[in-house]
Design a protein around this nucleic acid. Structure first.
Lengths: 256, 256
DNA sequence: AATGTAATATGATCTATATCAATCATTGTT
DNA sequence: AACAATGATTGATATAGATCATATTACATT
């Protein structure tokens, strides 16, 4: 009798997209992994308890955005990392040093993978190994690049950089795509790029007033001038002046 | 005829410390990897050319400190990550998006590993695989924790946090060790924690004036009050006041 | 040891962004 | 659909840390 791919996996986007982990697995591997795993629907604010993470330290993100949050002793909160579809969060054996709370920033679907079966599959399946390895390195360099944004960039530059990060996450391929959706709330965005929500708001306004972006809705923006936004994100301070000259935001007052 | 561990490896600390990658390898594996690899001595400022990294994208750090630097278009420089002994820097196939320059911050020894042999060994040797996987995850979480420091912490808190990072790197085990060596220059330190060298200097003085640390030399400090430094690093703002009260920095002026 | 150069420290200002205060908009709930 | 409740915006002010200027110290080279 032929081994059937589990129904749950058949319905999961991680199985369909060829560059994801689960798409590399054979039906037998999927059956084994699926049997010992737990999928879950999360809503904003849902967090994984320490006990849950001790038992299920490997989490695959199917959809939505998860975050790793840090709360300082006087209440300041930071979102240290974002995880999106395709990311495999591997929190094994790092519980010793407390590394933060894993919290959903909106509706999300995840699959908590059995660590032992996961490990077995990774060792046996070279393609799966490759995918998981690349994903972890991607996470590393994403974190390092985020550090660059946080270290020396100004508010406007950080926001520009974040917009490209969002753009990269979704369309990924489509070079000319200028519609970007911001998948998280302003407050979370502020906590991620290390500024205050008020400043985030002001920076959105500033980019808009310079004609570089347009705010369609709270979560959807259109980039009107990709090169200019890119230059700001890369920290070319001269641009800001130039753009201002190109688009002087003076209004013609009607005469009596 | 028995296979001899290569001389070069016998003299390398990565081979002696049991938790390092090379210590997991069999003599045969070492011979193969060693034959196709290149070790190098670096001095401060030495950087890996793009061509070098294209051919040798896997670098093992034997001693010293390497950095991943980002230069913005207007000249602002950021040190995005630090790598120290035992770290394996894997820059394979990420040359597409430019990820920064790998530069030594002082005298350092590295071993550039042949990517193909490295890959072969990792797949064949489970112990080596475990070590390299743990190291990569360690790098990821180090970067994420660094983001926490950069995002919301104040100057003094960032410096305190960095001191613990240094302490963790060297002694690692010795809980009570209060002597910490700062392995990089003030300027590099400033670029790593995202502040100006002047501010770094002022913060060292402030910690000293509060009696929390003592500056032995430029590169050696003694922590006089570990819990207080820890609380500052964790962002407990109330501490700063308390310490001030406990150690009023007034000097008794000698009377005539 | 002497000398020149680079790194660090200190003091005086300035500015970007945090903070505070008050509306305005959006979302979820009954 | 109406109502809270939560989130986002806007304006006024305060401040931590950047920047600029200068002095001091450490380090390398002869």
């Amino acid at each position: 009798m032929a081994i059937e791919t589990p129904l749950r996996c058949k319905q999961c986007s991680l199985y369909f997209e060829s560059d994801n982990f689960c798409a590399q697995l054979s039906p037998i591997e999927l059956v084994n992994l699926n049997r010992e795993s737990r999928s879950a629907k999360l809503k904003r604010g849902d967090s994984f308890s320490d006990e849950s993470l001790a038992q299920w330290p490997v989490v695959a993100v199917e959809s939505g955005v998860l975050s790793l949050q840090h709360i300082m002793q006087d209440g300041r909160k930071t979102i240290a990392a974002l995880f999106m579809r395709g990311d495999i969060i591997d929190l094994r054996s790092i519980s010793d040093r407390k590394r933060g709370n894993l919290i959903a920033l909106g509706k999300a679907r995840v699959c908590r993978l059995s660590p032992s079966i996961f490990e077995k599959v990774v060792k046996a399946n070279p393609d799966a190994h490759q995918v998981i390895w690349d994903n972890l390195r991607e996470q590393t360099f994403r974190a390092i690049e985020h550090s660059v944004d946080l270290a020396k960039k100004q508010a406007l530059e950080k926001l520009a950089s974040f917009i490209f990060e969002c753009r990269h996450h979704e369309g990924a391929n489509d070079k000319s795509s200028s519609i970007v959706s911001i998948p998280i709330r302003r407050l979370d965005l502020a906590e991620y790029i290390g500024m205050q929500p008020e400043t985030v708001s002001r920076c959105f306004r500033e980019l808009e007033s310079k004609g570089i972006i347009e705010l369609e809705t709270l979560t959807t923006i259109v980039i009107k001038n990709i090169p200019a936004l890119r230059r700001i994100a890369n920290g070319d301070r001269s641009v800001e002046e130039n753009v201002k000259l190109e688009n002087p935001d003076m209004k013609i007052i009607s005469f009596a």
